[in-house]
Design a protein around this nucleic acid. Structure first.
Length: 484
RNA sequence: GGCCUCAUGGUCAAGCGGUUAAGACGUCGCCCUCUCACGGCGAAAACCGGGGUUCGAGUCCCCGUGGGGCUACCA
């Protein structure tokens, strides 16, 4: 049966060595989206064959991140499925059995060479290939060494001539000469398989039709194909993905301290926006839409839209997208998500929350901006006179000095101290005095908040603060100006 | 070093032999009952270089340059 006729099965196969990188998450996302789009299954498999790299909690982080991002897998370690176990360390016996079969089929061989001999094969630059020394061992010699308990590995037997090529669904034809491929270790001396072997065995056993993974495997794929062929298994389709970069030279990685999915969530980016954004890094839909929900992505995803070149992660654009999601939220949803960040502010609980949130909603792109946006309500100190300067409003500290006392008098008389009334009073004041509205409003806003940017205009800030504090702050601001 | 691979504005990214080379983010400007924003409108900004092929090349081929990857008993 041809791959294209089989029901689509994709997999995400991370190794639990730490946090979920954005690049990893995108690989998972594409595997998920492709499976959904094709009505197939998406499998999670843990590649933990390297005991040295094991990191506690990493497995849980993988589960949590995928769940949080909405990337649901049909089969996996914690959800089960017909092809388990889905954790490679629990499949050691399987790999050993297949490795031995590959030896019988001539695709691999036992190797007893020790570290010293291997080292001696390398040149001054540390490069050197294995010389197939143990391939020449007779069957009896191998049996004897095995019986004597000599440590061994099983190596792939790569032809010395010829070449292997395949059709990558993103990159097109990829060809590698076999002479450039080393007889790599398939089964380590600790009995565990290497990635190179385990991924082939598992992808076959788990019926994976489309292998979606990073482009670092582009040039090693021919050697995997050699194994599929030696076993007589059907090769899967390959979809290699370009990396996500932090800049033109470095890949995005946790090791460099770059943001992981969790970090971004903690920074207050809207989750859906993160998923949406990373979907767009390396892929674009036919219609070039940018803001898309997971469901919409599932609808429009196609391999044809995948790019070949690396994409640089651009936080400002993610920020914008996050803001778009926020503006679309209904008030209840916004309140629910914003509340944890609201609680980080000194102003929390002291003001009408609904009023605060209404002001914040169109002025915030990521939730973590919230505390700093409203801290002025509780923090009021010396005001830099330069803030009163605004070219367009024709305002400066001098203007403020005349405006502030007038505003104070004027606001004393406002009956109901709320936005519209305060606004009307201030505008009337400006007219009466032959000033521009902006001169009054700008100066009052600065005097009230001490900030150049605030989550609302002068009258809205006054309403939040209330009459008493508004008048007190106007007075304080004025005395500061007079001293200066 | 060898091999694989990539190359459109600052960033993402359309384009798939004939276009005034889209769009988005960011930047700047203007407008919005002359307050912060939201929003609207607009501007600046790109086909890495050199050879081919072709009536015609960002699009195809070759070389160069630059980037990324692989070259582990890591994945």
């Amino acid at each position: 049966m041809e791959t294209k006729d089989r029901p689509v099965r994709t997999r995400f196969a991370p190794s639990p060595t730490g946090y979920m990188h954005i690049g990893n998450l995108r690989t998972a996302l594409y595997g998920y989206l492709f499976a959904k789009k094709e009505g197939g299954k998406f499998v999670l498999r843990l590649e933990d064959t390297d005991a040295k790299r094991y990191v506690a909690d990493a497995v849980q982080i993988i589960y949590d991140t995928l769940r949080d991002a909405g990337i649901a897998y049909d089969e996996g370690p914690d959800v089960g499925g017909p092809c388990g176990p889905y954790v490679q360390s629990e499949r050691a016996a399987i790999y050993k059995q297949y490795a031995e079969e590959l030896v019988r089929r001539g695709g691999a061989y036992y190797c007893f060479c020790d570290k010293e001999r291997l080292e001696s094969l390398k040149d001054e630059n540390g490069v050197g290939r294995y010389d197939k020394h143990c391939l020449r061992l007779s069957e009896e010699e191998v049996r004897e060494k095995l019986a004597a308990g000599v440590p061994y590995v099983i190596r792939q037997n790569v032809p010395e001539t010829g070449s292997g090529s395949y059709e990558d669904l993103v990159y097109g034809t990829v060809t590698v000469d076999f002479k450039d491929i080393e007889d790599g270790v398939l089964l380590k001396s600790d009995g565990m398989p290497t990635y190179n072997f385990a991924n082939v065995v598992d992808d076959h056993l788990m019926g994976i039709t489309h292998v979606i993974r990073g482009s670092e495997y582009l040039s090693s794929t021919p050697k995997y194909n050699l194994m599929y062929d030696a076993f007589g298994w059907e090769r899967p389709q390959y979809v290699h993905l370009p990396p996500i970069m932090k800049n033109a030279h470095e890949k995005l990685s946790k090791r460099n301290g770059d943001a992981s999915y969790q970090d971004l969530v903690e920074k207050g980016y809207v989750r859906e926006a993160i998923v949406n954004y990373i979907a767009l890094l390396g892929w674009s839909p036919k219609d070039n839409r940018e803001k898309m929900t997971l469901r919409e992505l599932e609808e429009s995803f196609s391999l044809a839209g995948i790019n070949k070149s690396p994409a640089i992660f651009d936080e400002p654009k993610l920020r914008w997208l996050s803001g778009e999601y926020i503006k679309e939220m209904d008030d209840e949803e916004f309140a629910r998500r914003a509340r944890p960040f609201l609680q980080q502010s000194k102003a929390y609980g002291k003001y009408d929350e609904a009023k605060l949130l209404r002001l914040l909603k169109t002025r915030v792109e990521i939730f973590s901006e919230i505390p700093a946006k409203i801290d002025f309500l509780e923090e009021y100190g010396p005001i830099d006179p330069a803030l009163y300067f605004n070219k367009k409003m024709k305002s400066d500290a001098e203007v403020a000095e005349t405006v502030l006392p007038l505003a104070e008098e004027c606001l004393k008389k406002v009956e109901t101290f709320e936005n519209a009334a305060v606004y009307a009073a201030l505008v009337a004041l400006a007219q009466e005095r032959g000033m521009k509205n902006g001169q009054v409003l700008w100066c009052v806003r600065i005097a009230l908040t001490g900030r150049e940017n605030t989550p609302g205009g002068a009258s809205e800030m006054a309403e939040l603060l209330g009459r008493e504090r508004t008048l007190a702050r106007l007075q304080e601001a004025l005395s500061q100006l007079q001293k200066a």
